[in-house]
């Protein structure tokens, strides 16, 4: 261990954040203000998520970090090492092993279970922000359940693109009360928001925490004649052959060759270890 308090944050700060989390769990989808601390990383790198992880983490936890589904990007590696050093917790890349998973832009493909906590890094927590710039006004709209504007955004999508073109950060209605931005996850992941795990959302710069307790009803907004669709790229993973996972498009060379691979690196690795092979894959 080091000279840091367990998990970097001091205990008073953790208590303050835990209170905000409890309030968030009690009022699902409601954005709870909290006194976000300066963290040893820039805003936009997951300061909100890190504070949430620090506040819920215990020495017995097993920690996993994913960024766009991957465990081995710079951001994921840095945050994982940060908690290895400041909390000394076990870390893993396997979704099923982890008790606390911090994520940016994805929900793991492997279904989460009761007892797990999924912590989202959120850049802009306010789903109404792009249409209504005033925070005073958006808060009033939430408190009075005035959500017509949210549908104006979807209307604009259809009128301009012929379909709801919003592909990520797709707004949802939580337990028939609060409209929530699920952070920039692809809308493919939206159905997974109904989950046995606890889901916590932290926006460091915007100083907001919100939460979705286990098994909470989460509905993606849509029109009767343009229903919500959890879409993804057509095709299968070139490495593991999965056709039911969210795919990233990867450019292979200067000639413009490209292939689709699972965005969830753990999911892909696990499948390949079990012998699944895609068109470009090498049997392990």
């Amino acid at each position: 261990m080091t000279d840091y308090n367990f998990a970097y944050l001091d205990e008073q700060t953790k208590r303050m954040i835990r209170r905000a989390i409890l309030k968030g769990l009690a009022v699902p989808g409601y954005q709870v203000p909290f006194a976000s601390r300066e963290m040893p990383m820039p805003y936009g790198w997951g300061t909100g998520g890190v504070q949430l992880s620090a506040a819920v983490m215990t020495p017995d936890d097993t920690f996993k970090v994913i960024d766009q589904g991957s465990d081995d990007t710079t951001n994921a590696v840095s945050i994982r090492r940060f908690f290895e050093r400041t909390a000394g917790v076990a870390v893993t890349e396997e979704t099923q092993e982890a008790t606390v998973i911090q994520t940016r832009h994805r929900i793991p493909e492997t279904p989460l279970e009761a007892g797990q906590i999924l912590v989202y890094q959120v850049p802009i927590p306010e789903p109404l922000r792009f249409l209504e710039p005033s925070e005073v006004e958006t808060r009033k709209m939430h408190s009075l359940e005035e959500y017509g504007l949210m549908h104006v955004k979807l209307y604009e999508d259809i009128s301009q693109h012929g379909a709801i073109a919003t592909a990520y950060a797709y707004p949802v209605m939580v337990r028939d009360r609060y409209v929530m931005d699920p952070s920039p996850i692809p809308k493919f992941d939206n159905p997974k928001l109904h989950s046995p795990a606890i889901q916590l959302f932290g926006a460091g710069r915007e100083q907001r925490i919100y939460a979705v307790p286990p098994f909470t009803k989460v509905v993606s907004l849509d029109f009767e004649d343009y229903p919500f669709e959890a879409s993804k790229a057509e095709g299968a993973c070139a490495l593991c052959g999965a056709d039911n996972s969210y795919l990233d498009e990867v450019i292979m060379d200067d000639a413009g060759h490209r292939m689709f691979v699972c965005s969830d690196s753990d999911f892909c690795t696990t499948r390949r270890a079990r012998g699944h092979v895609g068109t470009e894959g090498v049997p392990s």
């Binding site: 249409l131 017509g148 104006v152 209307y155 604009e156 259809i158 301009q160 029109f223 009767e224």
Partner: peptide
Amino acid sequence: LRMNVSAGGNVGERLMAVGARHYGAIR
């Protein structure tokens, strides 16, 4: 008006605000 929303969206907003959820009907 909402200057960054189309004419149709501007006119349809009040309908959506009172619960209209059928794109075709709103349009």
